[in-house]
């Protein structure tokens, strides 16, 4: 990896580690994350039983915390990835249309962007989940469909800029249709900044998922999520610190890595910070 500082290398390594851990959770988790053992409730990290060691302790139903954190990583990353994909696709499409057709299309789209941005996202998500009922799919839809305006803004501004460039004019004169120009010529040229937005949104989505699950509106029991593990742990802070500390630390490190990765990515795609 040319031009990657040692610090950045560490961040990338951690990110890869998180993703691998999430993907491989069913194979590397030492216990079944749903398997309760009522007699082994709230055991501290390092407790050993015949079946193995509870490396991070157990929760209030005697389930292995390490296994739950690993499976929770899966939930966090899956929710973030899917909801970012939805809002990225939706937001970019609207931004491209607004930037290309301008006029009333742009007015309609950009005013709805302004409207969406003026509604507190977490409140909207809480309300929607409360109405639709909490489920994995609803969680992804809610996060995906409340966060698109940021992409639309970036895509719109970038499209406006790119649309005036000579090669677009040339393509138009060569007879290319709007769809082809948007897909083949504009989208690749505005992808960089959009990826930067997507990265920072990814970190935010992980936090949102944890927040909603903490409130009981996200991943539903018995399936683990960092947010819901911490929500349970809150009741046991005095007795079982490990329930809040470990998922909290994972959340912190993962979001930090994602954000630093986003900064690094921005520096690479932003023309103003490109020295070459």
């Amino acid at each position: 990896m040319r031009g990657v500082s040692p610090g950045m290398a560490l961040i990338l390594l951690l990110l890869v580690a998180f993703i691998v851990a999430a993907l491989a959770a069913p194979w590397i988790a030492p216990f079944d994350p749903l398997r309760q053992s009522l007699l082994m409730r709230l055991r501290p990290p390092g407790t050993t039983v015949a079946a193995g060691m509870y490396l991070l302790g157990t929760d209030d139903l005697g389930r292995d915390l390490l296994s739950r954190v690993l499976h929770g990583a899966r939930a966090s990353i899956a929710v973030a990835a899917l909801s970012v994909s939805i809002s990225l696709a939706f937001g970019t499409l609207l931004g491209l249309l607004a930037g290309w057709f301008r006029g009333w299309v742009a007015i309609a789209i950009m005013r709805s962007v302004d409207t969406m941005l003026s509604i507190p996202a977490i409140l909207l998500a809480v309300l929607t989940v409360a109405v639709l009922g909490p489920s994995f799919l609803n969680l992804i839809l809610v996060l995906g469909l409340t966060r698109w305006p940021r992409y639309t803004r970036v895509a719109y501004a970038q499209t406006l800029q790119v649309a005036t460039l000579p090669y677009i004019r040339a393509a138009e004169m060569a007879g290319a249709g709007s769809a082809r120009i948007l897909w083949r010529h504009i989208l690749p040229n505005i992808a960089g900044p959009l990826m930067v937005v997507a990265t920072s949104e990814f970190g935010l989505m992980i936090l949102f998922e944890a927040g909603l699950s903490f409130l009981g509106l996200g991943i539903q029991p018995p399936y683990p999520s960092w947010g819901s593990i911490m929500s349970v742990g809150r009741q046991y802070v005095e007795r079982a610190w490990w329930l809040t500390v470990f998922p909290g630390a994972c959340l912190f490190v993962l979001v930090l890595c994602v954000n630093l990765f986003g900064d690094w990515l921005r520096d690479r795609v932003d023309p103003r910070s490109q020295g070459r």
Binding site: R35, Q36, L61, P221, P222, V232
Partner: peptide, 14 residues
């Protein structure tokens, strides 16, 4: 609903 002990519910589920 949140008024009922989640742990009892989850133990019953298991």
């Amino acid at each position: 609903s949140p008024a009922y002990d989640r742990r009892v519910n989850e133990a019953v589920q298991q």
